[in-house]
Design a binder for these strands. Structure first.
Lengths: 195, 195
DNA sequence: CTTAAACTACCGACCGTTCGGTAGAGTTGA
DNA sequence: TCAACTCTACCGAACGGTCGGTAGTTTAAG
């Protein structure tokens, strides 16, 4: 039994039941250990949560940095970043869900340790929007706000997206990107989209 | 002591700590009653949660129906609906937070009772988008998906919006609506926005 | 012989809920 | 008018159960 196996199992149950509704007994059952044995591998339930959150953000940050380093236009980078985000959301469903929905369950001292990673990730998205603004490709009046709206749409999808649904992460990202990049309103001079 | 006072207090604590991290003792303390006395007014903790969720959605539905009944263009209706939404989010902060963040804590039987209201509300937004599409004002390839994205951005703001922040609900709604209606990309033929 | 990794057994605290009881206000009948 | 009764709103105590966590012991591999 490794620490990572415990984290994976915990993430799965946290996602299903939520942090507070999950007991250490639940986690122990999932990895076929006695509850007490968990404490050989981890220090506390809060630590488990923190490690899950950190791990999830590390994955998101790594993928985002890859995209940012590509020699692409800001618009294309945005589309790729969104695809990457939705892919991670599907492939690392448990981690992503816990990151987005159980952040509130982190007690203050643990939250303090987690915040820098959060800020780093949000900063990457602001950077992306800023590139687009500087190159006169994006119209953004408030970068920080736009980044939050952008992350908001994507974050909320975790609450309703089903992996057995009809939409793949790519299709989801495409629809979302179209909406954000082109807007709802029809563009008079030849709308390049088709239904 | 009335049932409503208990619901208000519960909503406030649920928002701060989350449903599962809130004990009946916490709620009792807030309304200066003994824990046992709560059970004279309500049947269970789950019932408290359900009543809060229902009440929150009733407010949202009522305001949305008002906006839908106005003789306005779809674009203007969308903007008004967004303003209304953010206003409720600020004025009924506790109710709205619990509605968005604690829905998951409803046990299946209680959830069943709550779902119709949810569907009704989401349907109103789809109706709004559909009006715009039929009048060739909005370009929407997938109404249901667009409605979810739309609700997603707004719902997520509850996680970061502070009432002491620099943005009023109206300003927030304006920025959000601009982003959604006009999109990020600059429009060649005279962008009507200004920074 | 050591040590990592698991176990059994247990702790005090707290959980949501129920119970029996009661103070006091309101209602009723003589 | 006043005793008898009922109802509302609340209380203290306790219930069975679960919680996160700890102490001490056994097992298995090197």
């Amino acid at each position: 039994m490794t620490r990572d196996e415990i984290l994976d199992a915990a993430a799965q149950i946290f996602r299903q039941k939520g942090y507070h509704a999950t007991s250490m007994q639940d986690i122990a059952n999932a990895v076929k250990l006695q509850k007490a044995s968990l404490y050989y591998h981890v220090n506390s339930k809060q630590e488990i949560l923190l490690m899950i959150l950190d791990r999830a953000l590390d994955i998101l940050i790594a993928r985002m940095q890859e995209v940012m380093a590509m020699p692409l236009s800001p618009e294309e980078k945005l589309r790729r970043a969104m695809i990457a985000y939705f892919q991670i959301m599907l492939e690392q469903r448990d981690l992503a869900s816990v990151l987005l929905l159980e952040y509130r369950s982190l007690e203050p001292e643990f939250r303090q340790r987690h915040i820098p990673r959060r800020d780093h990730y949000e900063h990457l998205w602001r950077e992306l929007l800023n590139e687009g603004k500087n190159q006169r490709i994006f119209h953004v009046s408030d970068i920080a706000l736009a980044a939050r709206f952008l992350l908001g749409v994507m974050n909320w999808t975790i609450t309703w997206y089903r992996e057995d649904g009809r939409l793949s992460p790519e299709e989801l990202a495409k629809e979302c990107a179209n909406l954000f990049v082109l807007g709802l309103k029809v563009r008079e001079n030849g709308d390049q989209r088709k239904n």
